[in-house]
Design a protein around this nucleic acid. Structure first.
Length: 285
DNA sequence: CGATTCCCCTGATAGC
DNA sequence: TGCTATCAGGGGAATC
């Protein structure tokens, strides 16, 4: 389940592999993947030729990231947006034989230096062609996004102000991408554990100091996870097909009823925002 | 405004 | 063997 560290790892891998490569040809196996999921039923007519024409014969000049969205900047002024959602993968290899070509490969990019595939078992992800910079900046997927966790605007004070305004559970706030982007189910639980705060605490009940612990935990957990190329719990892979190595450092996620690595008591499992949530009833206050 | 629930989709797993 | 139910959880949308 790609969250910010996984998406960032894919982006960094792709920069090494495909930056400055030319997109010669694109094979589209599942045209619906070029639309946002919410439009797939109401917009059955998909102009695949327009999608291909906009992207083929261009050169990849830059690969950026906003929240969990990867942004390819092309030399023809167009952009390509990719969201991996739950099971999406962007995989590159010089040889096609080294890639997992199956029914889940929705897009095949034939590049000047190899092959890039967009593979997504559950089809929640998307790959959009963006006509120009104006369309990019005004695109709905970027509206209502909160601060990047590593931006200078994201401060302890900012987080404290946001939490003071909220009567929601702290984990719901962390999952809410309009406050600060990047944390999904895995890292929310890990952040709460590191900050020693129970995930069901009401946001505005956190003290200034607790908020500081939470703030530091968000940055430290995400930073460490990026350093280890993310967490490969199930489907996630880096762009070269390798697994992320943060899995062994997980303290609570996926460990319900197992002993807490800190105090040894069994970890609790509850549901918050319809998400499985694991925490230590003793270490977290 | 928030909380809840359902939905998109497929694979893994459990139970009968 | 094979059917059915449940779970996984990023994000949008409908409902209360």
């Amino acid at each position: 389940m790609p969250e910010l560290p996984e998406v960032e790892s894919v982006r960094l891998g792709l920069i090494k592999q495909v930056n400055n490569a030319k997109i010669n040809k694109i094979e589209v196996n599942f045209p619906q993947i070029t639309l946002l999921p919410e439009f797939r039923k109401t917009k059955p007519a998909i102009d695949i030729e327009d999608f291909k024409k906009g992207l083929e014969n261009s050169q990849i000049k830059q690969i950026d990231r906003r929240a969990k969205i990867i942004i390819f900047q092309l030399d023809n002024g167009k952009f390509m947006l990719v969201h991996l959602k739950m099971t999406g993968q962007l995989l590159f290899n010089k040889n096609l034989d080294n890639l997992p070509i199956d029914k889940h490969v929705h897009l095949l990019f034939k590049l000047s230096n190899g092959y890039l595939i967009f593979r997504d078992i559950r089809k929640f992800g998307y790959c959009l062609k963006i006509h120009n910079k104006t369309e990019l900046n005004q695109h709905k997927v970027f509206q209502n996004l909160g601060l990047e966790p590593f931006s200078k605007e994201f401060t302890h004070t900012y987080l404290f102000k946001k939490l003071q305004l909220s009567s929601r559970k702290i984990k719901s706030v962390l999952l809410d991408q309009t406050i600060v982007v990047g944390c999904g189910n895995i890292y929310c639980d890990e952040v709460c554990f590191m900050a020693k705060i129970k995930p069901y605490r009401i946001a505005k009940s956190l003290t200034f100091d607790e908020t500081k612990q939470l703030y530091l935990a968000i940055k430290l957990i995400l930073k460490n996870a990026i350093k280890l190329n993310g967490t490969s719990f199930s489907n996630y892979r880096n762009s070269d097909g390798s697994s992320g190595k943060f899995l062994e450092f997980l303290q609570v996620y996926g460990r319900s009823n197992l002993p807490c690595k800190h105090c040894g008591s069994l970890l609790s499992k509850i549901s918050i925002s319809s998400r499985t949530t694991v925490f230590c009833n003793f270490c977290q206050k």
